[in-house]
Design a protein around this nucleic acid. Structure first.
Lengths: 197, 197
DNA sequence: GATATTATTGACAGATCGTTCAAGTATTGA
DNA sequence: TCAATACTTGAACGATCTGTCAATAATATC
């Protein structure tokens, strides 16, 4: 099944334009980013933006989904990798420490969006909650395996612990915005690592 | 020394108006809150607002300082109270668990502001960083006392642990916005409590 | 009571917001 | 070649934004 497209072909790469939009929303937030600014940064005309993505909010939703695919999914894959569940968790801690200070300017689009919208936009809230649950579930699965394999005490509660990790992720993204050196984030993660042992 | 004020006295309570402004910024963020909306909510005319507070950004700075005084300072006082440092930390954990779900709609004005502004507004960034350091220092002092009193192992690193707690505070405020029941937050805090023992 | 000072009120300026209309352009299928 | 379709360009829309001007009202000091 292949739908033939009639009409003038678009002159820009939809995926690349979406990535540019994601970057801008990521660093500035939704409200502070104007459509004209998006057009400039995406290299797309105003009308083309509306034709292709609907409106500003729809574009933001797509940007958020793109963020999930390129930024959050890799972390979930690490947690879901075969082998030691505990090692997977530690690998995520490594990733957090290695990334400290690098993307300090933007933080995390998911955390920023939760802070910006809260429950004001139900549609967005549902998506954000689903993303958060995805992170929680990945940690929980890894921690359950760790416990079942004897890497964690039997009394460990993977679900509650997973929620701590998911919470920590949001906190790190937030304080990371004020921490260009990355020391604050690295110290926090190192503490978490030691508490886990 | 008492300065006599000539001229027509203002008809509203400056402190109460500021509290209203704080509440609105708290629940909606800076960009999403308009001056007209602020006037309505504060019960103050437009020109009176500008006369009294300068402009929108100056009003926001005052609102942030007010937030620090009424929301963050009490937590710092708990940590600084005499007696067991570890007990003080646990009391803060109690406060977080008790408050879970209550102020879910708004989260934390400090965390929201870090997410909204990042390092875009240097003046605000400095203030936010100072607030974060205040929290960190209070935790560190309590944890140092706890370690010195044998409530924590000698190998414990209060500074790094304090940064974990400060990070956790931001994370809890963030995920709390999507967690009206408060269960997520309570689970995360309970995990932290157990790891600490 | 006269004057200086400050607060309130309502209108409004200038810019920017998100969105759409209209006209022109490039491609496909007949 | 011609109609149909989709994208691009540029102007424009109405609404809303932050901030200010000008006039009026209420207080303190002289």
């Amino acid at each position: 099944m292949f739908v033939v497209m009639a009409g003038r072909p678009r002159e820009f790469d939809r995926g690349k334009a979406l990535k540019q939009a994601m970057d801008l929303f990521w660093s500035q937030g939704y409200e502070a980013t104007g459509v004209a600014e998006l057009c400039d940064h995406m290299g797309v005309g105003r009308q083309s933006l509306y034709n292709t993505f609907g409106d500003k909010q729809a574009l933001f939703v797509e940007a958020l989904e793109h963020y999930r695919d390129v930024q959050i999914a890799p972390m979930i894959e690490v947690l879901s990798a075969p082998g030691s569940g505990l090692a997977n968790v530690h690998q995520v801690l490594d990733m957090w420490q290695d990334g400290a200070g690098k993307q300090a300017k933007a933080g995390c689009l998911m955390a920023n969006s939760i802070a910006e919208f809260g429950i004001r936009e139900p549609k967005l809230s549902r998506r954000l909650r689903a993303m958060l649950c995805g992170v929680e579930d990945a940690f929980r699965a890894a921690l359950e395996r760790a416990r079942d394999d004897g890497e964690l005490p039997d009394a460990a509660e993977p679900r509650k612990l997973a929620r701590l990790f998911a919470t920590l992720a949001q906190g790190l993204a937030t304080v990371g915005r004020l921490d260009p050196s990355g020391m604050f984030v690295r110290d926090a993660v190192e503490s978490m690592r030691r508490l886990l042992q």
